[in-house]
Deep mutational scan, measured.
Amino acid sequence: TTVHVNGVTYHFPNPEEAKKFVDRVVKEAGLTVEVKGNQWDVE
């Protein structure tokens, strides 16, 4: 699973890890998340 955060790419072994990361980032920074298949874009 690939997560893009403001142009930076993070790779995770599974969607659960990616979701935990995204949830944390979104809570801390108040960002928006767009999910496209296995790819997350966070802005």
Rank of each mutant, 00 (worst) to 15 (best):
T1S: 05
T1F: 14
T1W: 15
T1L: 11
T1V: 15
T1Y: 14
T1M: 08
T2S: 08
T2Y: 14
T2D: 04
T2N: 03
T2M: 08
V3I: 07
V3S: 00
V3A: 02
V3G: 00
V3H: 00
V3R: 01
H4Q: 12
H4I: 15
H4G: 03
H4A: 08
H4R: 15
H4W: 14
H4S: 13
H4N: 11
V5P: 00
V5Q: 02
V5G: 00
V5R: 02
V5A: 03
V5H: 07
V5I: 13
N6E: 03
N6V: 02
N6A: 06
G7F: 02
G7P: 00
G7Q: 02
G7H: 02
G7N: 03
V8D: 03
V8G: 03
V8R: 12
V8I: 11
V8Y: 10
T9L: 10
T9E: 07
T9F: 08
T9A: 12
T9P: 11
T9G: 02
T9S: 08
Y10K: 01
Y10E: 00
Y10C: 03
Y10Q: 01
Y10P: 00
H11N: 04
H11F: 13
H11V: 07
H11P: 01
H11G: 01
H11W: 15
H11T: 08
F12P: 00
F12E: 00
F12N: 00
F12H: 00
F12G: 00
F12M: 01
F12K: 00
F12D: 00
F12L: 01
P13W: 07
P13M: 11
P13V: 08
P13K: 12
P13F: 06
P13S: 13
N14C: 09
N14H: 02
N14E: 03
N14D: 08
N14Q: 02
P15I: 13
P15R: 06
P15V: 12
P15L: 12
P15M: 13
E16R: 03
E16G: 04
E16M: 08
E16W: 13
E16V: 06
E16A: 09
E16P: 01
E16H: 06
E17C: 10
E17F: 02
E17L: 06
E17Y: 02
E17K: 02
E17V: 03
E17I: 03
E17D: 08
A18M: 03
A18S: 01
K19Q: 12
K19D: 03
K19M: 11
K19I: 05
K20V: 07
K20T: 05
K20Q: 09
K20G: 03
K20C: 11
K20M: 07
F21W: 05
F21Y: 03
F21N: 00
F21D: 00
F21E: 00
F21L: 01
F21P: 00
F21R: 00
V22R: 07
V22G: 01
V22P: 00
V22L: 13
V22N: 02
V22Y: 13
V22D: 01
V22S: 03
V22A: 05
V22Q: 03
D23N: 05
D23R: 04
D23V: 03
D23F: 05
D23E: 12
D23H: 04
R24F: 11
R24P: 01
R24M: 09
R24N: 06
V25L: 15
V25G: 02
V25R: 03
V25Q: 04
V25C: 15
V25K: 03
V26I: 13
V26A: 11
V26W: 12
V26L: 14
V26R: 12
V26G: 07
K27R: 12
K27F: 11
K27M: 12
K27C: 13
K27N: 07
K27I: 08
K27Q: 08
E28G: 09
E28S: 07
E28Y: 11
E28D: 07
E28T: 07
E28R: 06
A29Q: 12
A29Y: 14
A29R: 04
A29N: 09
A29F: 15
G30W: 07
G30M: 07
G30Q: 07
G30V: 05
G30I: 06
G30D: 06
G30T: 06
L31C: 15
L31W: 14
L31E: 07
L31F: 12
L31P: 05
L31Q: 07
L31N: 08
T32L: 11
T32E: 10
T32F: 03
T32S: 10
T32H: 11
T32V: 12
T32G: 08
V33E: 11
V33M: 05
V33S: 10
V33I: 10
V33L: 09
V33G: 09
E34P: 12
E34S: 13
E34F: 03
E34Q: 08
E34A: 11
E34Y: 04
V35E: 08
V35F: 11
V35P: 03
V35D: 11
V35H: 09
K36Q: 15
K36H: 15
K36M: 15
K36S: 15
K36W: 15
K36A: 14
K36N: 14
G37Y: 13
G37C: 14
G37V: 13
G37Q: 08
G37W: 14
G37M: 07
G37S: 04
G37R: 03
G37T: 06
N38W: 06
N38R: 03
N38F: 06
N38Q: 08
Q39A: 12
Q39R: 12
Q39P: 09
Q39G: 12
Q39C: 15
Q39K: 09
Q39Y: 13
Q39N: 11
W40F: 10
W40T: 07
W40Y: 10
W40M: 07
W40S: 06
D41T: 14
D41C: 15
D41H: 15
D41L: 15
D41I: 15
D41A: 10
D41N: 10
D41W: 15
D41G: 09
D41Y: 15
D41K: 05
D41F: 15
V42R: 07
V42Q: 10
V42M: 07
V42F: 07
V42T: 10
V42G: 09
E43V: 15
E43Q: 12
E43H: 12
E43T: 13
E43G: 10
E43K: 13
E43A: 11
